[in-house]
Design a binder for these strands. Structure first.
Lengths: 168, 168
DNA sequence: TTGGAAAGTCAACATAGCTGACATAAAATC
DNA sequence: GATTTTATGTCAGCTATGTTGACTTTCCAA
């Protein structure tokens, strides 16, 4: 499995050796841990967890989204999400409005307080991301996003690609 | 490609807009979920979890490492790790040898069975990583690794950089 | 010889996943 | 209009994995 790519003649596929792939795996692990560390620290002050952060993030990204849409993005059970949403609604960070056309649906929005926490969390996370981007440079950022995109499950990739990407 | 890299001057930092950074954050989230999905599925058959996988991964990477070294890499408490290690040792996947110089230390090694599970998990994870790498191309892979590296906490980055990177 | 580091263990707890069962309201279908 | 399906919410209970705190054992090194 190792040397299969090296016998290709050109060294253009050297990055597919087992060692290279293992390094990529470790890079994902270490980077993801750093990536969540700042928000986690902030969330402790509010007695919320990572699950709350994720919900808040996606509600902010797509205001008015329904519970089932959010479920699909988070990839958890409705029971698990509901526990989180209940506290966020009770604490006045999220508003669940009855759907206009379909009254079974709940359209989720951040309140002013919810938006404020979202900003605090996002600021910290973006600061680290920005520093990493600055350090690595624009070309690296493009590659970074390309690889992550290729790694995603197709359904989520479709959602991901549909989101707006540049400043208004 | 993004338009951010195509122009220079004031627009050369367009990739640092909030929207771009938020996309990067989402990319990390979605990709990381896909990244862990395959091993998680395999681990269910063995009644192990992600924590076992991580321990097995690092013991394989650095055979003979001590418990404290592993703790530093995983970033969890010794109580949490100990629960995992105990089951792995009891099940005959990991061997904890008393240190030769310092007998307080335990040098961790995978047994044949442990190495076999490691391979099964790693094969799945590398397959996805390989597919993503193939799809994105060598230049993207370089960028991917650069950004992840820049995102890591310095201590772990040092460990990460010290690991061998190419096939022997 | 003693202090402190490395490792292991016990207890108790929290978070956030999960399954299964069930309830309600509204939409969709027959 | 009656029935079925869908979207959501909820209760109960389980599991995995993290946490803190207190304690012991081992044993290196000053």
């Amino acid at each position: 499995m190792e040397s299969a790519t090296e016998t290709h003649g050109s060294e253009s596929l050297l990055f597919l050796t087992d060692e290279q792939l293992r390094k990529g795996i470790e890079a994902m692990f270490f980077a993801y841990r750093a990536f969540t560390a700042d928000p986690d620290r902030i969330l402790e002050n509010y007695e919320y967890g990572r699950a709350h952060h994720r919900a808040i993030h996606f509600i902010n990204r797509q205001p008015g989204l329904t519970v089932s849409t959010l479920l699909a993005m988070l990839g958890v059970t409705k029971q698990s999400l509901n526990r989180v949403l209940r506290t966020l609604v009770a604490d006045g960070l999220v508003e669940a409005r009855v759907g206009r056309q379909d009254k079974r649906e709940r359209n989720l929005h951040l309140t002013a307080r919810g938006a404020s926490l979202e900003r605090e969390l996002s600021d910290a996370q973006r600061a680290r991301m920005r520093a990493a981007y600055r350090n690595a440079g624009p070309a690296a950022v493009t590659g970074f996003r390309q690889v992550l995109e290729a790694m995603m499950d197709p359904d989520l990739r479709r959602y991901y690609q549909s989101m707006k990407d540049s400043a208004p």
